[in-house]
């Protein structure tokens, strides 16, 4: 790390404000000209005053109760949500394992979808060619048999497996994982663990959201603890887990 002192992810006092009711009567005029909403009581901060630095090779586990802001933070880092306050700087490419099947289209075949999704994440056709077998192997024999079937005929487990397989094959140095390990059968879970360990030993940076203490302890060295949108703990994974379980006693 001494060779590369710049953190790969730095969050600088980020905050993001949500509305309590999801669909709201929005005045376009208001939002363009004032930027601030006139009814502050109806909003809450999904994240507030969050600052941290993550260095290359770090394995970070995010803990916290439901609604604490874990997924929100992950999405801010992935760049699919923009903070209202502060700034997050991500200096390397990100492979987001969030909404794994988001890039897939039901009408295309699995084969076409692999090329499309990998393409959206920046792989060229030739690069996908090279990795195609690896991707399909990892997703399992069921997926291989259904390669030329429209994607919407896949079972949800198969969809997630293919999604995981494509995204983890990307060369991105930062990997964001949002509880995807909870899906998939036991055999696939084991494969996922192996793949994640391989990625970690490859000096990738990992950000993991999980409720499983076992997963967190297994992969993560550093923990961040989010409580009602605020960062209340940042330290070695075991300490943060202890703090979290004390809080929830």
């Amino acid at each position: 790390m001494a060779a590369n002192p710049k953190p790969v992810i730095s969050a600088d006092d980020i905050g993001i404000e949500f509305f309590r009711s999801r669909k709201r009567n929005l005045s376009i005029r208001e939002i363009i000209f004032k930027r601030r909403m006139s009814h502050p009581r109806e909003t809450f901060w999904g994240l507030r005053n969050i600052s941290f630095d993550i260095h290359a090779g770090d394995a970070v586990g995010l803990v916290g109760a439901n609604g604490g802001g874990k997924s929100t933070l992950l999405r801010v880092i992935a760049g699919v949500l923009l903070p209202d306050e502060g700034k997050v700087t991500v200096r390397k490419g990100v492979a987001p394992l969030i909404e794994l099947t988001g890039g897939f289209l039901g009408d295309l075949t699995a084969r076409e979808n692999i090329y499309l999704t990998a393409g959206l994440h920046g792989l060229t056709h030739d690069q996908v060619d090279e990795r195609f077998d690896e991707i399909v192997d990892f997703a399992g024999p069921q997926v291989r048999d259904g390669l030329d079937m429209p994607f919407r005929h896949f079972s949800s487990g198969m969809k997630v497996r293919l999604g995981f397989s494509v995204v983890t094959t990307l060369d991105e140095p930062i990997i964001l994982v949002d509880e995807v390990l909870a899906v998939g059968d036991k055999a696939f879970k084991e494969k996922c663990y192996a793949r994640m360990e391989a990625l970690l030993s490859d000096n990738r940076t990992l950000f993991l959201v999980s409720h499983s203490q076992g997963d967190l302890k297994r992969f993560c060295t550093r923990g961040l603890y989010l409580k009602s949108g605020e960062l209340v703990g940042d330290g070695p994974m075991n300490d943060v887990l202890k703090q979290y379980s004390q809080d929830n006693r």
Binding site: R75, P96, I98, G102, L120
Partner: peptide, 9 residues
């Protein structure tokens, strides 16, 4: 919407 939620393009 789905692609926008899952990619940082």
């Amino acid at each position: 919407a789905k692609l926008i939620r899952s990619t940082r393009l």
